[in-house]
C-alpha cells in the first residue's frame, strides 16, 4: 500500500516538475503550448540513451536532458516567437511540433522506433524526485518573482504596453519557453528512469493537454496553483484506478467543476500563503456563524 502511494506521489511530482515549467511559460506569458509532451519525450530519450547506451552518470544525464529540451525549445521558439504568431496560431504550431517529435522518435534507429527502450536502470527514487521537484519549484518561484518574471507578466497583460516599458517581447517569451522546455526535459529524464521503459506512444497530445489543463485549472500566473492541480490530476485518477473506466469520468468531472466554480483556476494570479490561508478560514468561520 505504501508502495502504491509512493508510486502515485512519484508520478505526481514528476508531472509537477513539467507543469511548473509550463506554468512559467503559459501562466506567465499567456501563450499556450499544446506540444509540451515533446519536451518531456526529448528529455526522457536523451537521458535514457545516455545512461543506457553510454553509461553516463544519471545526474549528468538529467542535466543533459534539461539542456537538450531547452535547446529544442530555443529552436522551436526562435522562428515562431520571432514571427510574433497570434496566440492561437502559436498553439497550433506547438501542436504540430509535438506530433512531429513523436513521429520522429518512432522512426529513428537510436530510439529503437515504436518498440521503445526497455531495461532502463531504475535510478529515479522518491527522494530524488522530491529534491528535484523542490529545487525546480524554488527556481521557478525565483524566476517569476524577478525582473525577468515581471517582464513575462507584462507581456501577458498587455504586450503593447510591455514593449513601451522597454520589454523585448521576443526575448521575454523565448526565455520563458526555454525555461519551461528544460523543466519538461528534466521531468522526462526522471520519468524514463522511473518506469525503466519508454516508447513514443507515451508522449502523445493527451499528455500535452493534461499539462496545459493542470496549468489552466491551477490558475494562470500562479506556481502553487498548478502544483496542486498537477498532484490532483495525477493523484485522483490513479486513486480511482479501481473504479476503472469511471476514473476518466471523474477526471472530466473534476475539470468541469473547477471551470464552473473557479473559472480563474484554483489560484488564478495568486499563490498559497499563510496569511491567505488564515483569511480563508476567517471568512469560512464568519460565513458559518452568520
Amino acid at each position: 500500500m505504501t508502495q502504491y502511494l509512493s508510486g502515485i506521489l512519484s508520478l505526481g511530482l514528476i508531472y509537477v516538475i513539467a507543469t511548473v515549467g509550463l506554468a512559467v511559460f503559459t501562466g506567465f506569458t499567456g501563450l499556450f503550448s499544446l506540444g509540451h509532451a515533446a519536451f518531456f519525450a526529448i528529455g526522457a530519450y536523451t537521458a535514457a540513451i545516455l545512461t543506457y547506451f553510454y553509461g553516463v552518470n544519471f545526474y549528468l544525464a538529467l542535466a543533459a536532458a534539461g539542456v537538450m529540451s531547452g535547446l529544442v525549445g530555443f529552436l522551436i521558439g526562435y522562428p515562431t516567437l520571432k514571427a510574433k504568431l497570434r496566440t492561437d496560431y502559436f498553439a497550433i504550431a506547438t501542436l504540430g511540433f509535438g506530433e512531429a517529435t513523436r513521429v520522429l522518435l518512432e522512426n529513428l534507429s537510436i530510439t529503437q522506433g515504436a518498440r521503445g527502450l526497455p531495461g532502463i536502470t531504475n535510478y529515479t527514487t522518491l527522494p530524488v524526485i522530491i529534491v528535484i521537484a523542490a529545487l525546480v519549484i524554488w527556481v521557478a518561484w525565483n524566476f517569476v518573482h524577478s525582473r525577468h518574471g515581471r517582464a513575462a507578466i507584462a507581456i501577458r497583460e498587455d504586450f503593447v504596453a510591455a514593449e513601451m516599458m522597454g520589454v523585448n517581447i521576443f526575448i521575454g517569451r523565448l526565455r520563458s519557453l526555454i525555461f519551461s522546455a528544460a523543466c519538461g526535459g528534466i521531468a522526462g529524464g526522471l520519468f524514463a528512469h522511473y518506469f525503466c521503459f519508454i516508447q513514443p506512444s507515451m508522449f502523445t497530445a493527451y499528455m500535452s493537454t493534461q499539462l496545459t489543463a493542470a496549468v489552466v485549472a491551477g490558475g494562470m500566473g500562479s506556481i502553487s496553483g498548478p502544483v496542486m492541480a498537477a498532484l490532483i490530476f495525477i493523484g485522483v485518477p490513479e486513486l480511482l484506478r479501481v473504479a476503472n473506466i469511471w476514473r476518466l469520468v471523474a477526471y472530466g468531472l473534476l475539470l468541469v467543476l473547477i471551470m464552473i466554480f473557479r473559472p480563474q483556476g484554483l489560484l488564478g494570479y495568486r499563490e498559497i500563503s499563510l496569511s491567505g490561508i488564515r483569511d480563508f478560514f476567517a471568512r469560512f468561520r464568519k460565513g458559518a456563524r452568520s
Partner: peptide, 8 residues
C-alpha cells in the same frame, strides 16, 4: 486608452 497592467 489607458493601458495599465490591469491585474497587477
Amino acid at each position: 486608452n489607458i493601458r495599465l497592467f490591469k491585474n497587477l
